[in-house]
Design a protein around this nucleic acid. Structure first.
Lengths: 201, 201
DNA sequence: CCGTTGTGGTACTGACCGGTAACACCTGTA
DNA sequence: TACAGGTGTTACCGGTCAGTACCACAACGG
């Protein structure tokens, strides 16, 4: 057992402790659940200790909020990347987003949207995570509406809601029942919805 | 402070302790989350103590599994009631089920499906709750397929999945973003889906 | 050279966790 | 009356929780 022994992220590297802690927290919180992971475990897995953790995060609740902010940032960056990959082609952006979601559904490590899971785990309305969750989900839906509208599809708000709810449902269903062929089925449903909103009247 | 002081369910009544414990567990686990509620809190709120609780439940995990079995039983009973209310009219049963779900979405106490929430909170594959969750969700989907097929709708499996995923998505979205008008929107989407599967060539 | 800053290590607090032992009690029954 | 089973009460176990005090050390810049 070497002196610097972390669980999955042994970082004796030059990455500052705050980033190491946040990376490890993201992994453990997502995989095992927020309430199931103690700050001790995070600190140890990050190759540091609880004191250093509390020098960078005021409390576990704040660490959780930062974990969710980071997750939201990554998701937003992914959407930005899609826009860069398909400039001026909102329909391709939309399909790319759906395809990525479908891929995730087949992944065995997939445990749904980290922010949705946090909302389930942390019902307290005063928890600092609540704001982050609400803002992220609102932005996500707004992006979908924008892309649907830019694609010239009829009733973009309705379509965005249909797609969004369908995907959210699929991501929790993957956790509760299973994911056999779920990705393909969902993709077909989404395609049908898009087609319906393209043809409509 | 009377000697028998529970939180929300003061039962000095003639209800046996096991039932009291299960009722209180259902309320607290659902409202606050499974990991957030200790066995002490449940015993106290049920007007009893931890010893009596452990005389009826082998462990907290088993209590959780029983809580989920009870929730599943209630949901199944609700579907049976629908069949009794609309005998031989599967379409009315389906619409009744959807209407009930939409009602729930507007309720401020709604915290989604207890079994889905448990799946999010308890990722361990070996947890006794896992079996209960999977069996319930499989049965729920099977009921939907059966009703859709009996209603003479085209592609009943596909329609059942569409409705199921949409509803699951709505129930988690109510927790993470909000429920303003969500029930009505979802009902409209479901109606459109049913119509589409009724007309379909 | 000194002092500052960030980090790691250890030990600790007080509360709570799930789970158990031992005993008093109450109620029904024979 | 006497026994028995289910229940309530208290105290306890070892472990873990979030959070903190204190000190040692290493790197830095003057």
């Amino acid at each position: 057992m070497t002196p610097s022994s972390g669980v999955s992220a042994e970082k004796a590297e030059r990455i500052p402790p705050r980033a190491r802690i946040l990376a490890v927290a993201r992994e453990l919180f997502y995989r095992d659940g927020i309430r199931a992971v103690g700050v001790d475990a995070i600190a140890e897995a990050a190759g540091t200790n609880k004191m250093t953790l509390y020098r960078h995060f005021a409390s576990k609740d704040e660490l959780v909020a930062d974990y969710l902010r980071e997750s939201a940032r990554l998701a937003t960056a992914g959407r930005d990347r899609l826009e860069a990959e398909h400039p001026g082609d909102p329909l391709a952006q939309l399909r790319g987003w759906l395809a990525r979601m479908a891929e995730r559904l087949a992944n065995a490590d997939e445990r749904g949207c980290p922010l949705v899971n946090a909302a389930v785990e942390l019902p307290e309305k005063t928890h600092p995570a609540r704001r982050v969750i609400e803002e992220f989900k609102t932005a996500e839906r707004a992006w979908l509406v924008r892309v649907c509208r830019a694609s010239g599809l009829r009733e973009p708000e309705l379509l965005a809601d249909e797609l969004h709810l369908l995907l959210e449902g699929a991501r929790v269903t993957a956790q509760s029942v299973g994911r056999d062929g779920l990705g393909e089925r969902v993709m077909r449903m989404c395609d049908a919805l898009i087609t319906a909103h393209a043809e409509k009247r």
